[in-house]
Structure formats: structure tokens, C-alpha cells
Amino acid sequence: MTSQWRSWFHKLIAVAIFLSPLLLINPKTYITITISGLAMGMLLFLVSSGFSLIFGFLSVLNLAHGALFAWGAYIGFSSFNLINQWTGWGGSNSLLLNFIIFFLALILAGLLVALLGIITERLVIRPVYGSHLFQIFITVGAMIVLEELIRIIWGPNDEVMPVPINFMGSWDLFDVVISKYPLMAIVIGFILYLVIFTILRKTKIGTIVRAGVENPEMVQVMGHNIYRYFTGVFAAGSALAAIGGGMWATFVKSIHPAMGGEIIVFALIVAIIGGLGSMTGSVVGALMVGLSYNYVAYLVPKASLGITMLLLVIILSIRPTGLFPEGT
């Protein structure tokens, strides 16, 4: 395959995924499903970007990432309920107050799970840096422990995720049904992508992290305490998982202790498709997976997970290092 064809490959795949369902779905339904697919993609991006960044920078395959996602959903759930009990902002007719309570819950989830991530990195991951086999064992162990802790603290049953009143329902634009929350999730996800991208591209810390993805040893001999950056990246990745968890729970309106195990499969697929360690790869991979999953779920519901696997196989057979192998 020529390099020119390779550079066009991911664009062709993206366009094919985006437009081909128009042949089978009527345009109004297509728009509704597309928005849902983009929302799912943006939420997957939040989870997979943290996973991918941790792998790229620390070279750690953190299979406990899904459990951190679940912790984010549960902390978001409790924070929302607690703040709502005091203020009633979740049921207020004011869109501003709805947004404030929603963001406060997400920020609390992000901060507390970042702290949990720091503890996990220091106690669990640090002793096994450089050994992928032990990392897999130990992060699976951490995932089980974190999941069981959720069952102890919040109970084993499913919970209904509270949703701010103005986030519910849909708009009807020229007979096209546009759900409110998925549209908000797309905007919030895109803003977060821009924030992450700007930090990585425009700040010195971001530049050091990108350098560390390529050669952590050289970053050390240039006077930077690499372990402090390892902890920081792990905390940031965990916070992204938590924010993704909180937003995902609002999207599907329910939470349960094993929800992390389900999402980690998607996060892994997205990270591999995009190229491990690449933010742009994560966003492109997540949107591809989100869109293809939703289109196929509408046309052939039983094949929806299969299409993401097929996408993974096609992309890896042509670009084994993912769509954006050049890092962040």
C-alpha cells in the first residue's frame, strides 16, 4: 500500500461509516441516530483517551480503567443526589442551575477518582512498571477490588441515574427528533477534547508528556521527574474515565457495579483503532465506533457489537499500529 493511500485510508473509512447508512435509513431517522452515535462516540472518547494516554506514557495496560469509570458514575450519582437534596437544582426549570449541578457532580467525580487513581498508581502500578504480564494480573485484581468496593458502598443493585430536568426529552426540528442530552454530550465531549488537545500541544507540561510517550528515559535525563509525570498522567486519565462515567450514566440513565467491565472492551477497541497514546486517534476511533454501533444497532441489533470488532479487524489488517500511530 502506498503512503498516499495510507494517509487517505482513515478518511475513506470515516466517510464510508458516516454516509453509507443513508442508503438504508430514511434521512430523518438517520440524523437522530447520527446524533446518538456521535454522543456515544464522544463519551467513549473520554474513557478511551485516558486509557490510551496511560498506555502511551506509562506503557501500562490499565485494565482497572473500567472500574475507575464505574467509580466516576457512582460518585457522580451520589454527588448529584446530595447536592440536589440541598438545593433542588436538578429539578429546577433553570437550565443554568441544571448545568451547575451536573458539572459540580462531574467535577467531584473527576477529583475523587483522580485521587483514587493516584493511590492505585502508587500502591498497585508502580511496583510493576516495565512488566506487562504482571500489569495485566495486578490491574485485573485492582478492577475486581474496586468493583467489589462499589458493591459494599452502594449495594449490588442497579440504580437509576438522576438527570437534570432540562436535559430530558427532545426537540422536534422539521420532524427530526433531536434528543437534548446526546447533543449536549457531543458539545461537552468536543470542548473537553479541545481542552486536552490544547494542553498537550500548547503547554510545556503537555509537550513533556508527548515527549515521554516517545522516550521517557530521555525526559528523565533532561531534568524532569518522570515519576511525578507518571502520577499526574495516571490521575488525569482516571479523572477522564470518571467524567466519562458520570456522563455515560446520564446518557443510559442507569448505573451498576459491573458497568466498567463492559466499557473497557470499547475503550480498548477505540484505543487500538486510534493508535495507543494518540488523543486525535482516540477521538476519531471513538466516533467511528459510536456511529457504526448505532447505525448497525438500528438495522441489525444483534450485530451491533460485532460491527465494532469487524471495524477493528479491518483497520488493524491495513494499519497494524492504528490510525494515528505517531503519538498524542
Binding site: R210, A211, M218, V221, M222, G223, I226
Partner: peptide, 24 residues
């Protein structure tokens, strides 16, 4: 001392493989 502490004392290192960050 750790490599980053030694580096900050005023020692620079150019490794055999150059250690360039190619994507930057």
C-alpha cells in the same frame, strides 16, 4: 542521585541513539 537530579546539577547527556523526540 536520580537522573533528573543529576541533570539539574548541570550535566547534559547525548545518548548513542541520539534520543531525539521524532514526533515533536
Amino acid at each position: 542521585l536520580k537522573p533528573y537530579e543529576i541533570s539539574r546539577l548541570g550535566i547534559g547527556f547525548v545518548p548513542e541513539d541520539r534520543g531525539i523526540f521524532n514526533f515533536l
